[in-house]
Amino acid sequence: MSRRAVTLTVASVLVLVLALAGSLMPVPYVVLMPGPTSNTLGSNDKGEPLIKIDGRPTYPDQGHLNFTTVTYRGGPGGRIDLITALRGWLESEVAVVPEETVFPKNESPEQVDQENTRQMRDSQESAEAAALNELKIPISTQVLVDSVQKGKPADGKIRPGDEVLAVDGTKTGTVSQVTELVAKRKPGDRVTVTVRRDGKEEKIDLTTAAIPDDKGGQRPMVGIVLGDRYKFPFKIDISVGDIGGPSAGLMFSLAIVDKLTPGALTGGKFIAGTGTITPEGRVGPIGGIQQKLIAARRAGATVFLTPKDNCADAMSARPDGLRLVRADTLHGAVESINALNGAKGTIPSCEGS
Results as ranks from 00 to 15, higher is better:
160 P>A: 06
75 G>D: 13
129 A>F: 01
134 E>N: 04
341 N>L: 15
32 L>F: 02
280 E>C: 01
342 G>S: 15
288 G>R: 07
239 S>M: 06
50 L>A: 14
159 R>G: 00
167 V>W: 00
10 V>G: 03
194 T>G: 11
140 S>C: 05
54 D>I: 11
277 I>N: 02
197 R>K: 12
152 K>V: 05
148 V>L: 14
273 G>R: 09
69 T>D: 00
306 T>Y: 09
254 L>G: 04
59 Y>F: 15
172 T>E: 00
258 D>H: 05
227 G>H: 08
86 L>S: 11
17 V>L: 15
229 R>K: 15
179 T>F: 09
341 N>D: 13
72 Y>Q: 12
272 A>C: 15
353 S>L: 10
235 K>C: 01
209 A>D: 07
23 S>Q: 15
137 I>G: 07
238 I>L: 08
316 S>F: 01
334 V>M: 05
220 P>M: 09
178 V>K: 13
307 P>M: 07
105 K>N: 09
27 V>C: 12
291 Q>P: 05
125 E>M: 14
158 I>L: 09
291 Q>W: 13
98 P>I: 12
116 N>P: 00
217 G>H: 04
76 P>N: 03
98 P>T: 10
291 Q>G: 14
212 P>F: 03
274 T>S: 11
316 S>I: 10
38 S>C: 04
314 A>F: 04
91 E>Q: 15
263 G>M: 12
30 V>R: 01
274 T>M: 10
69 T>Q: 00
172 T>C: 11
265 L>I: 02
293 L>C: 12
130 A>T: 01
317 A>E: 05
79 R>K: 14
213 D>L: 12
252 F>Y: 10
2 S>L: 09
232 F>L: 11
133 N>V: 04
102 V>T: 05
288 G>T: 05
11 A>H: 04
161 G>A: 01
179 T>E: 13
310 N>K: 09
316 S>M: 12
50 L>R: 13
269 K>W: 05
